[in-house]
Design a protein around this nucleic acid. Structure first.
Lengths: 213, 213
DNA sequence: CATGTCCCGATTGTATCCAATCCCGCGTAT
DNA sequence: ATACGCGGGATTGGATACAATCGGGACATG
């Protein structure tokens, strides 16, 4: 068994707490309280927070502490614009070198998203959805690119959950996934990129409504 | 006076040590030794290393420590490809909204690069060069985008110094900067992007020679 | 009442200490 | 000879203790 270090464990848990809204945007992260809740000392917590700072999930003010990042609408637009550029690149590189097995695997992941969609477990749907999209990105063999895309996804996770709470949106999402699979089977790069773009657009409009509220 | 925290101080210094090659690629960062050299305990050093891990400057193996990142040629190509996408975006957004004062300021920075070029101080040249390019990027008002571009620059800093050690390359660089200023004065987005691309290409070919050596 | 100042509790920042883990070399057995 | 197992030193991981800093409220002053 590979026993995770405390900082890795804590990193995961704090990510969860931010994504599911337990730690709310703007709120200070009190190290003593939180580390006690997680059953560790402040040292590994602080290291986890440094990672999250690097990802933009929290902001750090020396001698004042870490605060959960707040996303303005303009931040959101910027994040999605960068995603557009990078995801387009990822797909253009990935698709031509996908094997049939890759596509089958991605298709299976789309099925799992559909299964998860039938539950009300937003976290599970979100996780399955990520696995689907990143299985595509991973085929690019551009690990740094994928890593940057991942942190961009992370930075809007807390808001995207709202999108996935609506069954109508879930319908759309699954339908778009099906179309994407079809495009992949034909190795149709242009079509895939277009679908991915529409997918993002739906998401960004929904999320910006939530933020500006 | 704003007294920096130890972790911030240490972060800067370790960055320097990596950029100037004191800490060599692949080498383990021994926390006890290094923290002693820097006159602090291991705790702030570890936090600085976590930041650098997030930027890809070091890689972390649990229970084994931090190692200075090694860049393969394919890594290098990937970094420059991502830079191409993001810098093109930054310039397209930045240039249309530059004021005349912005352009004057950028022009001043180009002069400073030229001044620095007359010395043999590679670190100073490199720093001035960064200020020049990032003054352009900053005009995009897309802080996240600029931040990502900055970490991409950081990840090849140690290698780029070699490029700047050659006076012929410095000639080219300054000539290209002048052309860039001219393009900016005309708010010629396409031309600027093309120049920036050539600039990058010169750099990537020089650096990949160094790496594959 | 507005404003400035000082002090104190709360919180973060860092040093030190100890525990956990890994790597390496030695010895042993096959 | 090679593979395997097993200390032991070196190094990292984490807990605790203490120092530094900040923010806010009481109080004084105009």
């Amino acid at each position: 068994m590979s026993t995770l270090t405390a900082q890795e464990q804590v990193l995961r848990e704090v990510r969860q707490l931010i994504a599911n809204g337990t730690l709310k945007a703007g709120q200070q992260v009190k190290q003593d309280t939180l580390s006690a809740q997680l059953g560790v000392s402040r040292v590994p917590l602080r290291e986890a927070l440094k990672v999250l700072e690097g990802e933009g999930q929290v902001v750090y003010h020396p001698h004042r502490g870490y605060f959960v990042a707040e996303l303005s609408v303009s931040d959101l637009v910027e994040v999605y614009r960068i995603r557009a550029l990078l995801e387009e690149e990822a797909l253009s590189v990935a698709i031509p070198q996908m094997t049939d097995e890759d596509v089958d695997y991605i298709s299976d992941l789309a099925d799992e998203v559909r299964v998860a969609s039938s539950t009300a477990d937003v976290a599970a749907i979100s996780a399955a959805n990520r696995r689907f999209h990143f299985a595509m990105f991973d085929c690019s063999s551009m690990p740094r690119l994928v890593r940057i895309i991942r942190t961009l996804w992370d930075s809007t996770d807390a808001y995207r959950s709202v999108y996935m709470a609506s069954s109508i949106n879930l319908e759309h999402m699954n339908a778009e996934h099906d179309e994407m699979i079809a495009a992949l089977r034909q190795r149709d790069v242009a079509r895939s990129i277009q679908l991915q773009a529409e997918h993002r657009e739906n998401s960004v409009t929904a999320v910006s409504k939530v933020i500006s509220r």
